[in-house]
Computed example of a mutant assay.
Amino acid sequence: MAFPLVTRVTHRHLDVEGVRVFYRESLPERENAPVLLLLHGFPSSSHQYRRLIDALGSRYRLIAPDYPGFGQTEAPDDFVYSFDRLADITEGFVQKLGLERFSMYMFDFGAPVGFRLALRHPEWVAGLVVQNGNAYEAGLSEGARDFIALRPGQEDAVRGLLTLEGTRGQYEGGTGDVTAVAPDGWTLDQHYLDLPGRQDAQIALAFDYRSNVAQYGRWQEWLREHTPPALIVWGRDDMFFPEPGARAYLADLPDAELHLFDTGHFALEEKLAEIAPLVAGFLDRVG
């Protein structure tokens, strides 16, 4: 009986500007396999992509780093947390790996990081997989707008999202079958959130989120100018970035492939079996 290929995965660190970046990378069977850079969201880490890597990593080179302030990555005490700096470190990470052409999977915080990379290096981008990664005013729920409106002095409002209850709610909110969501994800995220200095880092990023909204116009212009191949997969019951945010991409990328799923923010947790084949087909087309 033929046994299915088991993905080989390596776990390493790479020093970038004094930040010890942790990343996980699949080792595909064939040379020159298409590359997919997996950009994680809040409050997660590269761990959120573990099942996708297992599903596709034997055919494609999947690379998932942890940002400063997340997961296993270690940043110096004086690191200044902003989305520009997250993009700086991710840019340096890509350059140190020697990547020249790849697709990006952009989820949640991965969208502002990925679009900053795209603006700086359009030649890098072979295609975009967008999963609940917003770039449009239409994709902001009332809750998201309230979050973006927070200002220094309202730290307690942010800390409410950084509790175990808040983290679990992000994973389970909007799901059709909560039993499909493994508790390991939100439990591990909370472990990292509770490490020394991590909540202060998240508060700084929360107050900087408005810098992303201010750049929406630039990102949309980039999409219209470069028209990258795009696959949009979206949990339509996302409490932060609802369905209109997915459909908004079609105004700038009318040829993009759009798939909506009856689930929430962390769509891969419940809908991996549906999303993974779409990602594979997309990489085959653009790879």
Rank of each mutant, 00 (worst) to 15 (best):
A55P: 00
G57V: 11
S58T: 04
R59P: 00
L62D: 02
P65M: 06
D66K: 10
Y67L: 04
Y67M: 02
G69Q: 07
G69H: 02
F70V: 09
G71S: 09
E74Q: 13
A75M: 01
A75V: 03
A75C: 02
D77G: 07
D77H: 03
V80K: 14
Y81W: 05
D84Q: 14
L86N: 03
L86F: 07
A87D: 02
T90E: 03
T90D: 02
E91T: 14
E91M: 11
K96T: 01
G98E: 09
L99H: 02
E100L: 03
E100W: 01
R101D: 13
R101V: 05
S103R: 03
F107N: 14
F107P: 00
D108G: 06
D108S: 10
D108Y: 09
D108P: 02
D108F: 08
G110Y: 13
P112M: 08
L117S: 11
A118E: 03
A118W: 00
L119I: 07
R120E: 04
R120K: 15
H121D: 07
P122C: 04
A126R: 15
G127W: 01
V129E: 00
Q131C: 13
Q131D: 10
Q131K: 11
N132M: 05
N134R: 08
A135D: 00
Y136A: 13
Y136N: 05
G143S: 03
D146L: 09
I148N: 11
I148L: 15
R151S: 11
Q154M: 13
Q154T: 06
E155L: 04
A157Q: 14
A157K: 15
R159C: 03
R159E: 12
R159Y: 14
T163G: 01
T163I: 05
L164S: 09
L164V: 06
G169N: 15
Y171Q: 09
E172I: 13
E172P: 00
G173M: 07
G174Y: 03
G176D: 08
A180G: 00
V181P: 04
V181F: 00
G185V: 04
G185R: 05
T187L: 14
